[in-house]
Computed example of a mutant assay.
Amino acid sequence: MARRNGETVQDRIVALIHDRQLQPGAPMPTEPQLMDLLGASRNSVREAVRALQALGIVEIRHGFGTFVGRASLDVLGPSLEFRIRSGPQSVRALQDLVEVREMLETALVGRVAGSTSESRLAALDALVTAMQTDLEADRAFHGLLYESCGNELVLQLITLFWQVYHQVEPLLGAPEERMDVIVANHRRIVDALRARDAVAAQEAMQRHFRDVKERIARAEAGQVATPLGGEAA
């Protein structure tokens, strides 16, 4: 395999996957084969494979070998969470994430407003009811909303942003929203979809995120006066 200028062993393994058109789940060449193909040392190959495993590009199944991974966006979760938690403007960084999620979901909910089936509406109704006692129902609700788009990247992004938000949500302090208000916001979304009203669906989604952003604004105001984790002077 020809070596291109500036390429690392990691880059060349990825190029090998593409050159051979290996699909997710396909077996990778063995470690000795990679050493021979790439002209690289055992340690270099092992380090590159470990780095690619962390990115989800390869999957190591102990006792079976190394396989092409699915590169799920879940691997970005720890980096996004670290970015929000580590900076001095952590609440602002969380607001940025919520704004991206709002733009994405507001556009998408308008897109599916005219095509949501009765069976999916019934499932969304059930998830809204379940939100009273089950936080996971909220995640499932936002994922189910956009299944009909047929866009796997969209579904992964929605799940990723939801998970990261709820991981760092304690930065905002105790929630002030009552659960019945949260449930009502989601119910409005379903009602708009049932009416096949794209504008109302988008307005309901924006209202849902407006409540979230107001909570972030309150936390940011408190952060300016008192550093997160600190005590009032």
Score class of each variant (00 low, 15 high):
214 E>F: 10
74 D>Q: 15
40 A>S: 12
139 R>E: 05
160 L>T: 01
98 V>E: 03
64 F>D: 13
174 A>M: 10
8 T>M: 11
200 A>L: 13
38 L>R: 13
153 L>C: 01
40 A>K: 08
56 G>P: 07
130 A>T: 09
187 R>V: 01
18 H>G: 10
151 N>Y: 00
68 V>E: 06
162 W>H: 15
140 A>V: 10
214 E>S: 13
45 V>C: 04
62 H>T: 12
108 L>H: 07
3 R>D: 09
88 P>S: 11
4 R>S: 09
211 D>T: 08
157 L>E: 02
174 A>S: 11
73 L>E: 14
167 Q>C: 03
29 P>Y: 12
179 M>N: 12
37 L>F: 11
7 E>M: 07
176 E>A: 15
202 Q>K: 06
29 P>A: 06
226 T>V: 15
16 L>M: 10
95 Q>W: 13
44 S>N: 15
205 M>Q: 07
17 I>V: 08
29 P>C: 06
29 P>R: 12
167 Q>W: 08
221 A>K: 14
52 L>T: 09
88 P>K: 11
77 G>D: 10
34 L>W: 06
98 V>A: 05
151 N>E: 02
88 P>C: 02
212 V>N: 02
92 R>K: 09
56 G>H: 08
216 I>M: 05
230 G>P: 00
187 R>I: 01
37 L>T: 05
85 R>L: 15
49 V>S: 04
24 P>I: 11
196 R>H: 15
137 A>P: 04
141 F>S: 02
32 P>Y: 03
179 M>D: 09
61 R>M: 06
69 G>E: 12
231 E>P: 01
118 E>Q: 11
92 R>I: 06
189 I>P: 05
233 A>V: 01
58 V>M: 04
71 A>V: 05
199 V>E: 14
50 R>Y: 09
146 Y>L: 04
22 L>F: 05
54 A>K: 12
60 I>R: 14
21 Q>M: 12
109 V>S: 00
161 F>Y: 14
